[in-house]
Nucleic acid binder design. Structure first.
Length: 329
DNA sequence: ACCTATCTATCCTGTACCTT
DNA sequence: AAGGTACAGGATAGATAGGT
């Protein structure tokens, strides 16, 4: 708190061109849930005094909730002419919402928005520090699956990745950020170019990436098989596993479809509630399965991810059998 | 020309509030 | 209480613009 106070005084004095001060302030008249979330202080800028509201935890912060709390806090603050929210850090979308709601706030060193003072500044350039994520985005997962299936034998730029996988370079830039932040690959700079490669090889990538990968299946729908064009029938789920192991495939075939392909046909096909003769199940994937499909079947890494939560012992055994036999061929 | 910070569009989900 | 609806917030990725 001391540190934030010092940063605040320094930053606001600089930006406002007037001396700013900061003093702690008691807040015992407030209910516990408010004192836990916010710390109050007295701020003076030049001759004007304000109530400073320090945010304890920016992760759970919601502008709309804050406005509700604010009304309660301001009841006991008749001696100041206004208030200002102070936070150590706030994500861009929250700062944007605060501006929309005209809530004055200061993130020392980064941004100050304070209409009452006639001030609004934002740091020109922010050093971007890629943050490690728990689960990588679908686009990043597509890049990793591409690498696992041998599609990235040499260092590659975001641009050529975008061409290869059908995403924008922007999305591939973010994918490289995530891969770098989670140490799943090597990202090197060669002049202006940013190059991604996997020096440890794809066999080492699989166990490293596994904790960060998601089930590619977003949703499963049932339609008449005849309504799915032959070229869209990429076998997935237990149907694909049946073809790659000793598992007996289900009677009702399972296919995988990307979001775009589904969008094209969704309005024309009828969804069937229960299994019937001539029906099939279609998994709607969060990345296009056709990018990595071979011989009309989804890639075995995505297949593994789509079935790893399966409790059935036969499926589990078949998955292991498939990974041993197929993955690196 | 290429990379990336920021803005924007779109879709999805959870929640509060309303109706039945 | 159950179900419906509207809205805010969150996730994802495309578009734009500015920097090197």
């Amino acid at each position: 708190m001391e540190k934030l106070a010092n940063q605040f005084v320094k930053y606001v004095s600089e930006v406002a061109g007037q001396p700013a001060t900061w003093r702690p302030r008691a807040s015992e008249h407030l209910p516990l849930y408010l004192t836990q979330q916010y710390t109050q202080c007295e701020i003076t800028i030049g001759r004007r005094s304000f109530l400073g509201i320090l945010l304890a935890d920016s992760a759970s912060f919601r502008p709309a909730t804050f406005e509700k709390h604010l009304r309660q806090i301001m009841v006991g603050a008749t001696d100041v002419e206004g208030y200002c929210l102070v936070a150590e850090a706030l994500p861009a979308y929250l700062r944007q919402r605060l501006v929309e709601r005209k809530i004055p706030f200061v993130v020392p060193g980064q941004q100050l928005y304070w209409p009452e003072l006639g001030l609004a500044v934002q740091a020109r350039k922010k050093k971007q520090t890629p943050v490690a994520v728990a689960i990588v985005s679908p686009a990043t997962q597509a890049v990793l699956i591409c690498a696992l299936t041998g599609g990235i034998p040499a260092p590659i730029t975001p641009k050529s990745l975008a061409e290869k996988l059908g995403y924008t370079t922007m999305t591939m830039t973010r994918a490289l950020d995530e891969i770098e932040a989670n140490a799943l690959g090597q990202v090197e700079r060669n002049g202006r170019e940013r190059l991604l490669n996997f020096p440890a090889g794809r066999r080492a990538l699989w166990p490293a990436a596994l904790p960060y990968l998601r089930n590619p299946v977003r949703e499963t729908v049932r339609i008449r098989e005849s309504q799915l064009l032959l070229k869209l029938r990429i076998q997935a789920g237990e149907t694909a596993l049946g073809g790659l192991s000793m598992l007996v495939p289900p009677k009702e075939p399972v296919y995988a479809l990307g979001a775009q392909a589904w969008k094209k046909i969704a309005s024309r096909v009828e969804q069937i509630p229960v299994e019937d003769t001539g029906t099939c199940r279609v998994q709607l994937w969060c990345y296009p399965p056709e990018l990595f499909a071979r011989d009309g079947q989804v890639d075995c890494f995505s297949l593994y991810l789509s079935l790893r939560a399966e409790e059935d012992a036969r499926v589990e055994a078949a998955l292991e059998e498939m990974m041993e036999k197929m993955a690196w061929s």
